[in-house]
Design a protein around this nucleic acid. Structure first.
Length: 341
DNA sequence: AAGATAGGCAACCGCTTTGAG
DNA sequence: ACTCAAAGCGGTTGCCTATCT
């Protein structure tokens, strides 16, 4: 037997709220509050709605100072950086953005931001699939490395990498002591990347730099060559970076999301005793690298953060300046915590 | 002009967490 | 310590609108 329903489903109205319902709910709560009991509230005020529905309507729409749409670039940055750090904990992310609801942010992420940031991935995956279909070695083409990750984990990894590639690679690498702890790239991986580089027509110095130092080691860090079963010994390094805000602090202390991500990665990585050429190819094809390496367009590489949708209100479309500190702290903390840096 | 498709968003569903008794 | 109702939360659904063919 399941739990009793919170309301009489048969006599409860569903679907969009009418202006009258909105007004009724809003005026009652503004004068009387919720009374600490959402379930009883609709009956009190004569609404044929589920209490949960009333609560949601109030929190997401009727509550004062709610903002809808018109996300600023700074808000975008915060959402992205927090998503990278803590994943899809929308309520926590929303708590960092006054006037925004978790639902709003979630929708905004799913419908716009994610595509904005990861849009190129799809294209690159398609290219990759085309190439893989030419293989005749019998390896399951559907078991691609990237497909092994959950969408959330993969998105976060790719965002990490893309962001890394666009921030000054030298300054990060040289100034971040943890980067020195990263293992060297396996020669075969390095070779594959270099081949990709050579095959490209890309002469953008920034991109070349990105390939030759931090990205390479970042890649290696994500895909270690050794089968490491001693995860507990080195997988978590306590970060010396002060967390930003309660959300990140909570994430840093509980490590739940990060641990989950780490476990997911470990599960994959521990099954990879041997790096095959196919794996190497996939590594080289890992999106941010491929994007940076493909079709020789430095503009394309530089505008990934800018809007594909023609939004021109931002003067620094590829800039994360407004959240540089947040990015560095949150992102790298995540890496340190989750990937054994 | 009409149908098909895609995108955006509000709302719902159901699982988890919290806290009172 | 345990139970259970309420609240919180994230994922999913479905409707509406815009765009494409």
């Amino acid at each position: 037997m399941g739990r009793a329903p919170c309301c009489d489903k048969a006599n409860v109205k569903k679907g969009p709220w009418s202006p009258e319902e909105d007004a009724t709910l809003k005026s009652y709560i503004e004068t009387n509050g919720t009374g600490g009991n959402w379930i009883a509230l609709p009956q009190k005020i004569g609404l044929k709605r589920c209490g949960k529905s009333c609560r949601l309507r109030w929190l997401n729409y009727l509550r004062p100072n709610i903002k809808h749409g018109g996300f600023t670039e700074e808000e975008d940055n915060i959402i992205c950086s927090l998503y990278i750090s803590i994943g899809s904990r929308w309520s926590i992310i929303a708590a960092q953005l006054p006037g925004r609801t978790d639902n709003d942010i979630k929708n905004y992420w799913n419908t716009r931001l994610k595509k904005k940031l990861l849009g190129k991935r799809k294209q690159s995956s398609n290219n990759n699939n085309l190439n893989q279909q030419k293989d005749t070695n019998g390896i399951d083409e559907n078991s691609s490395y990237s497909n092994s990750l959950s969408s959330s984990a993969l998105e976060r990894l790719q965002l990490h990498m893309q962001l890394q590639s666009l921030q000054n690679p030298f300054s990060f690498y040289n100034n971040n002591p943890t980067a020195l702890l990263w293992p060297k790239l396996h020669p075969s991986q390095e070779k594959m990347i270099q081949i990709s580089l050579q095959n490209s027509n890309n002469n953008n110095p920034m991109i070349q730099n990105a390939f030759t130092s931090p990205q390479v080691d970042l890649l290696e860090n994500i895909i270690p060559l050794e089968n490491n079963n001693n995860n507990n010994n080195n997988s978590i390094m306590h970060s010396s970076v002060a967390p930003r805000g309660e959300a990140v602090e909570k994430s840093a202390t509980t490590n739940e999301g990060i641990q989950e991500l780490e476990n997911e990665l470990d599960e994959i990585l521990n099954n990879r005793n041997i790096i095959t050429m196919e794996d190497e190819y996939r590594v080289a094809e890992f999106d941010c690298f491929r994007d940076m390496n493909s079709n020789g367009s430095k503009d394309q590489n530089l505008i990934w953060w800018s809007n594909d949708s023609g939004d021109t209100k931002s003067g620094s479309s590829n800039s994360w300046d407004s959240s540089t500190n947040l990015m560095q702290e949150g992102m790298f903390q995540d890496y340190e915590l989750g990937y054994g840096l």
